[in-house]
Computed example of a mutant assay.
Amino acid sequence: MDTIPVTVLGPSGSGKTLYLASLFRRLAIQRADTGFFVNVPGADKLRLNNIFREVTSGAPDEWPDPSMQANTTEWTFTCSLRTEEGEVFSPFSLSYLDYSGAFMQIVDAWESEAGQAVWDRVRASKFLLLLLDGEKVLRQLDGEPGLTDELIAIFNEIQQSDAAVHVVVTKWDLLQAAGHTLRSVLDGLLEHPDFADFYLDRLNRKSVGTFRFIPVSALGQGYAVLDPASRTMVKQVRPGTYPRPYNVEIPFMAVLVDLVRDELRASALRAESAGPVLEQHRRRLERMEGWEGKLALLRGALGARPARSPLLRLFQQDVLGAAEEYGRERIAERRQQVEREIAQVRGQMLQARTEDEALTRMAEVFDAVLAEFEAVHPGSLVLKEAS
């Protein structure tokens, strides 16, 4: 398979380069929960690792400089798999075009040869990765519409493309700490008319690629917090704590799945895999997640109309508590079952004998992981690729 070009879009401060550095850090090792690893050419692996190290070991208020003017870098991630027999297959690569977010605010850059090359790449790309700064998202949800204002030029360019668009919400730990879900974040963004019209235009187009919303955190929960006084991100590095990137591999997996999903659906190998079983578990998990939401509504209704009798109030609380505990146990069991099924498919991936088989098995594992992810984050898959 040829290298798949992905153009990374996002205004200044959205964390594009840090995201790619975190992606490399997460996937540089073939881990048990991923089953594959990535390689990048020559000194790029050192550059990406140094970016990650500078962020995690620097001063509490030290972050990558977002003011670099119109610089562009292309990072190629080759996806590889070491099988149980010790063979290494490298069935595909993703090439990420990363440019400074300050590019969007420089008139001369738009008119330069380099600027035209970026937009030519955007229009030619089958995959666009749009990063939204989670800190700015949080501010917009609190009534400051600055983020959408910064995105208008990008929306205008995306409107000219039929590419798959993966919207990645960075710094998800901030939004999660504020009690947000992916659904509540999307609902809040859609309150801005420009964002809503961009969203609806994408949904109403007859022939466009997949449209996804994916929450990620380059450093993980609790490693950086929003200082309420300065309203800036501050690292809280404590002895024995390490960055634990969250979901950074999901957009990487989604590119391959969205590229070959139709082929996999018709593949004999797909029929022989655990895919149908995983799909069944995914649907059950979705129903249980929905049931958990209904339970929250019931809890609110009971709280709004408490029983008059202390004995009945105690009974209400006991019944609701038992129902919540039962729901949590069933959801945990279903998730464990899905994990076991994914581990089974991953085991088949590690038994691949050819590069083509490695690609097919890898796509099946990614598909299974995305199915679980979509069940846990309802609304992530907004639009499947038009047929």
Rank of each mutant, 00 (worst) to 15 (best):
Leu151His: 06
Ala153Asp: 13
Ser161Arg: 09
Gly179Ala: 08
Asn156Tyr: 10
Asp142Glu: 15
Asp173Tyr: 07
Leu182Phe: 10
Trp172Phe: 09
Leu132Val: 12
Leu141Ala: 09
Leu141Gly: 06
Leu131Pro: 04
Ile152Phe: 12
Gly143Ser: 09
Gln140Phe: 03
Trp172Val: 05
Asp173Ser: 15
His166Trp: 12
Leu128Ile: 14
Ser125Gly: 12
Thr148Ser: 12
Phe127Val: 11
Val167Ile: 15
Gly179His: 02
Trp172Thr: 06
Val122Asn: 06
Arg121Phe: 05
Lys136Val: 07
Ser161His: 06
Val118Tyr: 10
Thr181Lys: 02
His180Ala: 08
Val169Met: 14
Gly143Ala: 05
Phe155Asn: 00
Leu147Pro: 01
Pro145Trp: 00
Ala177Asp: 10
Glu144Ala: 08
Arg123Val: 10
Leu132Cys: 11
Glu150Leu: 08
Ile158Asp: 10
Leu128Trp: 11
Glu150Thr: 07
Leu130Met: 05
Pro145Cys: 00
Val167Trp: 06
Leu174His: 00
Glu144Cys: 05
Leu132Glu: 10
Glu150His: 04
Leu132Asp: 10
Glu157Pro: 02
Val122Gln: 05
Val118His: 09
Arg121Leu: 04
Ala163Met: 06
Val169Glu: 03
Phe155Arg: 02
Leu175Glu: 03
Gln159Asn: 14
Leu151Ala: 05
His166Arg: 12
Trp172Gly: 04
Gln140Tyr: 01
Leu175Arg: 03
Asp149Gln: 15
Leu182Gly: 13
Val165Cys: 02
Val118Thr: 10
Val169Lys: 07
Leu175Met: 05
Lys136His: 13
Val122Arg: 03
Ala124Arg: 13
Leu132Asn: 11
Ile152Glu: 15
Ala117Asn: 11
Leu130Asp: 01
Glu135Trp: 04
Thr181Val: 00
Ala178Phe: 04
Leu129Gln: 14
Trp172Glu: 03
Val118Ser: 06
Ala164Asn: 13
Gly179Gln: 08
Ala117Ile: 07
Gln160Lys: 15
His166Phe: 13
Leu128Tyr: 08
Ser125Val: 05
Val137Asp: 06
Val169Ile: 15
Leu128Thr: 10
Asp173Glu: 15
Lys136Thr: 11
Gly146Arg: 12
Asp149Leu: 12
Ile154Lys: 01
Val118Phe: 11
Val165Thr: 04
Ala177Cys: 02
Arg121His: 12
Leu182Ala: 07
Asp133Glu: 14
Val169Trp: 06
Ile158Lys: 09
Leu147Glu: 03
Phe155Leu: 04
Trp172Pro: 06
Leu151Phe: 01
Gln159Leu: 11
Arg139Ser: 13
Glu135Phe: 09
Phe127Asn: 10
Ile154Phe: 01
Gln160Cys: 08
Lys126Phe: 11
Arg139Phe: 13
Thr170Val: 08
Arg139Thr: 05
Leu182Ser: 07
Ala178Glu: 13
His180Gln: 15
Ser125Pro: 09
Gln159Arg: 15
Ser125Leu: 08
Arg123Tyr: 12
Lys126Met: 13
Ser161Asn: 12
Ala163Ile: 04
Asp142Lys: 14
Leu138Lys: 02
Val168Ile: 13
